[in-house]
Amino acid sequence: MSLTNQVTAADILRISGVDASRCMQCGKCSGACPNYDEMDIPPHRFAIMVRQGRITELMESQAIYRCLSCFACSQRCPRNVEPAKLIEAVRLTVIRQKGQNHMKADSIPEKLDEKLPQQAIVSAMRKYSK
């Protein structure tokens, strides 16, 4: 199923509470990102693309599922932009749409192993599905 709802930069501002225009493109967030290699759109580009209203591209990116939610970007940002919140806001606009759950409940059993803590399942469901 494809994304049907149009999402604007204003929606991202409302959901994230983050004003992306405060970003000065210093790139410290990307420099700090421990998962940089996996991010098709690194945090600093995420911020500028939100500012430019290129939300659809962001919604189609892999970065929204690959962010570790470790807050290193938010912590080290000198402008208090909090890229992690922007990424989460875009992810929310995707998974809130019908049929866009990134992780389906019935796919989980095969991924389980004996030691896997509940927390991993609970948080993955929180992050990737509605």
Partner: peptide, 15 residues
Amino acid sequence: NECCGGYLTLENKKA
């Protein structure tokens, strides 16, 4: 104090 990638263990085990 760098992330271990724990949240990704289900979604992207390699990472």
